[in-house]
């Protein structure tokens, strides 16, 4: 699939020469990534390869030490207002759901829109109920997260992120903590979201999902992007030995 290269201002995410250290450990070594609006990218790679660190640097849950991160045209600086704006533009779904256990499902969804002043309570509740219906958990809206199954909780987490009307959705291994029978319901929700044109950047090992929805698959190892390509090419003709080794382990 070929696209015209959009100018930086039009990119949903732009990462240039990104470096990140944890103490002495060089976790990201000059990562370059551009995500166009509407594009769907799957990031895969062995554990410790820096894929989670990469998306956590994109919404600035982790500060980077070198290079440039731009989300929706906003460059990440240390300025708190700027960081908040970037995080509103980039919705995040975590491996461990991280729903707020002291709030109802509906309150989980309305907390941020109401408290950041992007919506009135009535608007936020109407929007949240519509999104909860879309991820098929509207009937659970007044329960606490602890009363829901893992799959339901992760779908609530997706709805909660969507409540901030993000320009891009980041997924950090969204199905890795789920019981096997619940993986599909979460993937189906993500596939629907992709079908609606949402820009997505997902760290996942669900290669079926990658084949079905990704425009591009990015393979990372040792803090670098080793190769990337359209899923057809990527899975059929991996260029690098490390990619082949990784895919070989995955497909067995």
């Amino acid at each position: 699939m070929t696209r015209e290269t959009p100018s930086p201002a039009e990119l949903a995410v732009e990462v240039r020469d990104l470096h990140k250290w944890y103490g002495e450990f060089h976790a990201l070594r000059g990562v370059e990534l551009a995500v166009a609006p509407g594009e769907r990218i799957v990031v895969c790679g062995p554990s410790g390869s820096g894929k989670s660190t990469l998306i956590r640097c994109i919404n600035q849950l982790e500060r980077h030490h070198g290079g440039i991160v731009r989300v929706n045209g906003l460059e990440a600086t240390a300025e708190p207002r700027r960081l908040e704006a970037i995080r509103r533009a980039a919705g995040m779904v975590f491996q461990s759901f991280n729903l707020f256990p002291h709030l109802s499902v509906l309150e989980n969804c309305t907390l941020a829109p109401v408290r950041t002043g992007t919506a009135t309570r009535a608007e936020a509740e109407a929007h949240a109920m519509a999104l909860l219906a879309r991820v098929r958990v509207a009937d659970q809206a007044h329960k606490r997260p602890g009363q829901l199954s893992g799959g339901q909780q992760q779908r609530v987490a997706i709805a909660r992120a969507l409540c901030m009307r993000p320009k891009i959705m980041l997924f950090d291994e969204p199905t890795s903590a789920l019981d096997p029978e619940m993986v599909k319901e979460v993937l189906d929700t993500m596939i629907e979201l992709a079908g609606e044109g949402m820009t997505m950047l997902a760290v996942t090992h669900e290669m079926g999902f990658a084949r079905q929805v990704a425009d591009r698959v990015v393979f990372m190892d040792q803090g670098q992007i080793v190769e990337s390509g359209a899923p057809g090419d990527f899975f059929a003709h991996p260029q690098h030995e490390r990619t082949r080794a990784f895919l070989g382990q995955l497909l067995h």
């Binding site: 849950l61 995040m92 950041t116 992120a161 901030m164």
Partner: peptide
């Protein structure tokens, strides 16, 4: 993860 999720939603 609790504080991270809240920050990721854009809360100050």
């Amino acid at each position: 993860g609790q504080a991270e999720a809240a920050r990721a939603l854009g809360l100050g």
